[in-house]
Structure formats: structure tokens, C-alpha cells
């Protein structure tokens, strides 16, 4: 598969993630904006001699602080993902990388009320085309969300089978064939670049790839 093709897919994934994150940031800003406005309302009420309970003010400032934290985490995730493209082939910690991708899909999971769990041994290091790998996992998770019914669960488990690693995606869903359209052309192209192969068994998808790409 041509590098230009995988680069194009990675750019599309990056665009998708940026769109989703800008939406989330708009949400946090809206909450901060409204709560700042509410503090202003309280100030006016106090000026007019209407008593405002201190707990109400504390609750508002707490909400603002919480949303600032939330924004910070969202931006940190985007920043980390953006830096995945710094080096063509990069060494990484698999658990951290998968946790990042899962966090980047949080909003889509929430929209369908899907619970995602991740179990990965903490010490697995790998070396691969990092942004390609992340894009593949991201597209895989989104495809599984799309094929799952509302309220499903997606369990992601990792097996270290040095010299290869296998990620198992298990879908507990009302959908009859959650993997019916997997992999599509984009997922195939990305998998090919990182020498990954996939296998499907009932409600499980196994994605295997070498610990280090040659």
C-alpha cells in the first residue's frame, strides 16, 4: 500500500478527532460561560440586597474548576495525538497509547451510551508507525461503536505474544454482526503498513501486529 494512501487516511482521522475535540471544548466553554454568568447574577442579587447562600457560590466555582480540568485533559489528549506524527516510527508504551485512543473516542461512546473497558499489561513496549497504529485502532473502535446497539460494552484486552502483540476487541451488543463490514479499505491499508492481521470469531475481533516493525 502506498504511503500516500495511509498518510491521507491518518490526516482524515486527525481531522475527525479535531472536529470532535473542538465540539467538546465548545461544550466546556459553554458551561464555564454560563456559570460565570450565574456568578454575575449572584453579584447583582447581592447588590440588590437579596441574600445568596455561600454554598451556591462554591458550587458554581467548583463547576468552573471542573470544566477547566476537563478542557485541560481534552487538550492534552489532542496534543499527545498530534505529537504521534513527530517521528515516522516511534517507540511507545502500548497501555498508554491504547488509553489515549480510548479517551479520544469517549464522546462517541457517550453518544451511544457504550461502555469501553481496557485491560493491558502496563509494561508492553512496541515500536511501530505510531500515528498509523493509533488511526487503525481509532477507526476500529469507531466501526465497532457504529455496528453496536445502544448500551453495548466494548472490552479491549491485550495479549503479549512476543514477537507479536494481539489486541482482542469483544463486543457485547444486541447487533447480530458487529464485524460485518470490517475491515474496510482504509482499515486494510493502515493494517498493511504496520504488518497487522485480523481475525474474527463470533463477537471478537483479534488484531495482531509485530512488537517492532521492520
Amino acid at each position: 500500500m502506498e504511503k500516500a494512501t495511509t498518510d491521507r487516511i491518518c490526516v482524515q482521522v486527525f481531522a475527525k478527532i479535531s472536529a470532535s475535540i473542538s465540539h467538546e471544548i465548545k461544550n466546556t466553554l459553554s458551561i464555564i460561560n454560563e456559570n460565570a454568568g450565574l456568578l454575575d447574577d449572584f453579584a447583582h442579587m447581592a447588590e440588590e440586597g437579596v441574600g445568596v447562600a455561600v454554598e451556591r457560590v462554591h458550587a458554581v466555582t467548583k463547576t468552573i474548576a471542573k470544566q477547566v480540568d476537563r478542557s485541560n485533559i481534552i487538550m492534552k489528549n489532542l496534543n499527545r495525538f498530534a505529537h504521534s506524527a513527530d517521528n515516522y516510527v516511534a517507540h511507545g508504551n502500548l497501555e498508554e497509547t491504547l488509553a489515549l485512543v480510548v479517551a479520544l473516542t469517549d464522546r462517541q461512546a457517550a453518544m451511544k451510551n457504550i461502555t469501553t473497558t481496557l485491560h493491558c499489561p502496563p509494561d508492553i513496549a512496541f515500536s511501530t508507525y505510531l500515528i498509523t497504529f493509533e488511526s487503525l485502532v481509532y477507526l476500529t473502535v469507531l466501526a465497532l461503536f457504529q455496528a453496536s446497539t445502544e448500551g453495548s460494552t466494548l472490552a479491549i484486552e491485550v495479549e503479549d505474544e512476543t514477537p507479536k502483540i494481539t489486541i482482542c476487541f469483544t463486543v457485547q451488543s444486541g447487533a447480530a454482526h458487529p464485524f460485518a463490514n470490517y475491515p474496510d479499505d482504509d482499515q486494510k491499508a493502515l493494517a498493511e503498513q504496520i504488518a497487522a492481521s485480523c481475525r474474527i470469531e463470533e463477537n471478537q475481533l483479534f488484531l495482531s501486529f509485530p512488537c517492532a516493525v521492520s
Binding site: N27, S30, I31, E34, N35, G37, L38, D41, M45, V60, T63, K66, Q67, A110
Partner: peptide, 16 residues
């Protein structure tokens, strides 16, 4: 709105 904290604050401010 699914952002509970956004919706509840708008509710409070409108009710005021």
C-alpha cells in the same frame, strides 16, 4: 441538552 451542567445552569439563570 446532554451536558447536564450546561442545561442546569441555563435553567437556574432563566428561572432567576
Amino acid at each position: 441538552d446532554d451536558e447536564v451542567e450546561f442545561a442546569s445552569t441555563i435553567v437556574t439563570r432563566l428561572n432567576l
